[in-house]
């Protein structure tokens, strides 16, 4: 029973995070275990996690999307551009940002699923296109966004900033849907064996396209949320986000070969990375070391998995 729990990444990672937090609380009793620190920590990972939910779904189906980081910048930039330069009403501008995200996801999905372009190549190309697009719409940066737009990302509920609530809502809703609906269960089969899934009557191409649309939409939402939280749009937003998110999702139990992973794993992976980064800041370790440590942790986690797998075989 204990062994089974440890083999499930969601549980083993949760236990690890709790232990790391306990240790940090003992070492840094004044700075780490405070409400402010935790609320800031969660706020910092909220945008990444919303994107990570879509990425988790893609990895379950056996694909991934490198264009999400640029999507964040482009969707946020476009929305800001429409509001600031064209005085478009807030809801309409947001809707336009989301529609563009949907369109990009549709194109990615169509070219990958129906035309057979490799997801790595298609989304790498889209990464470049959208980053260029972000430069076009946001240029050197757009500030002074409308008050009500900023309110979306800057208000608080129960003392916690709204992006944290949006993140928890996204994770909660998708965890439930992935467990409880036939539609989302299909992704596990597609990632497990595409051919067998097709011959079992699953419309694999269509489902794959939906996954890319969903991933792009969540990135679009994250982009709008990020610009609203910052009160500004910049073409450099979300730079490197795609690799951070993939790291988090792999830490959270996904595999590049597909078929495995759970939505809460996306949150836990991001949380683990956030906690480590947070502790390093409190311990006054140079930011340069963060990426090095996180890289080592990722290798260690995946390697540990392989060792455990070999043992059980």
């Amino acid at each position: 029973m204990v062994k089974k729990l440890l083999q499930d990444r969601v549980y083993s990672l949760a236990i690890t995070i709790v232990m790391v937090c306990l240790a940090a609380s003992i070492i840094f009793p004044d700075n780490f275990p405070t409400f402010d620190n935790f609320s800031q920590l969660l706020l910092n990972l909220s945008i990444d996690t919303i994107v990570a939910v879509g990425m988790m779904l893609l990895l379950i189906s056996g694909a991934f999307d490198l264009s999400v980081g640029s999507m964040v910048a482009f969707a946020g930039g476009l929305t800001a551009n429409l509001m600031y330069f064209h005085q478009i009403p807030i809801p309409v501008a947001i809707l336009a940002g989301l529609l563009v995200a949907l369109l990009v996801g549709w194109i990615n999905g169509y070219l990958i699923a129906y035309q057979g372009i490799n997801p790595m190549i298609q989304t790498l190309a889209m990464l470049g296109i959208l980053r260029g697009g972000a430069l076009l719409v946001a240029g050197a940066g757009i500030q002074n966004l409308p008050y009500w737009y900023n309110a979306i990302g800057q208000s608080r509920l129960l003392g916690i900033q709204m992006p944290v609530w949006y993140m928890l809502l996204t994770v909660g809703v998708f965890s439930f849907l992935v467990n409880k609906t036939v539609f989302f269960r299909r992704y596990y089969y597609i990632g497990g064996n595409e051919k067998a899934a097709e011959l079992s009557g699953i419309r694999v191409k269509q489902m794959k396209q939906y996954a890319f649309i969903l991933s792009a939409m969540l990135a679009g939402i994250a982009g709008i949320l990020l610009t609203s939280r910052l009160g500004a749009a910049m073409s450099t937003l979300g730079r490197g986000l795609e690799l951070r998110v993939i790291t988090a999702v792999i830490l959270g139990g996904a595999s590049l070969t597909g078929g495995v992973g759970k939505i809460p794993g996306a949150l836990l992976g991001a949380l683990f990375m956030g906690v480590i980064a947070n502790i390093m800041i409190i311990a006054r370790i140079s930011g340069l070391w963060q990426d090095i440590i996180l890289g080592l942790i990722l290798i260690a986690a995946v390697w540990l998995d392989l060792v455990l797998l070999r043992r059980t075989k």
Partner: peptide, 25 residues
């Protein structure tokens, strides 16, 4: 299908997962 392992089964999935795949409903 002819090829049991590559076309009929999801080898890394459980017996349950494999039995219900064509009629998840």
């Amino acid at each position: 299908p002819e090829e049991r392992k590559s076309q009929g089964l999801f080898l890394d999935k459980t017996v349950t997962d494999n039995v219900i795949v064509a009629r998840l409903k």
